[in-house]
């Protein structure tokens, strides 16, 4: 299990390749990547704040829960904080499993929990000022299926 919370940018290709390369006997690797969206060309900076200490604990707990539910070889979570620009990579998860169903489902589970149970907050700075991104009801509802 590899869980990283960092300010620095990371290379999606390098991370995915290294993750896949350290598996053995795993027939499936699924990756998900979150990217800063600039809706309507108004975004200058996306600021991501987190709760050092709790963030790592929460992500570890979510990853452990995924490993308890599905047959997984490994889990990777990388999440950035700080000031990001449009089209920059915010975060990624990767799951490795013998078969694709476990890898897909576990990746979706990780994302659903990470959205509303890991202590990150986004603030959009743009042409119209700055505003905290509100949590969406759908994100809370998404947890019910698990």
């Amino acid at each position: 299990m590899d869980i990283r919370v960092q300010e620095a940018a990371f290379d999606l290709g390098d991370e995915a390749r290294a993750f896949a390369a350290r598996q053995s006997g795993m027939g499936a690797v699924v990756t998900f990547t979150g990217i800063v969206r600039d809706v309507g060309g108004r975004l200058d900076v996306m600021e991501i704040e987190h709760y050092p200490g709790m963030t790592e604990r929460a992500l570890t707990k979510i990853a452990q829960e995924a490993r308890a539910r599905w047959s997984l070889g490994d889990v990777l979570i990388v999440h950035r904080y700080g000031r990001l620009r449009a089209d920059e990579t915010i975060m990624m998860v990767a799951t490795a499993a013998r078969h694709r169903a476990d890898a897909f489902q576990a990746a979706q589970f990780l994302m659903d929990y990470l959205k509303s149970r890991a202590p990150f907050w986004k603030k959009e700075h743009g042409r119209d000022g700055a505003a905290w991104v509100a949590a969406r009801d759908e994100d809370e509802v998404a947890l019910d299926r698990w």
Partner: peptide, 10 residues
């Protein structure tokens, strides 16, 4: 003890 708004990760 920490207080914060609903989280918006991902």
């Amino acid at each position: 003890v920490a207080f914060f708004p609903p989280m918006t990760g991902g």
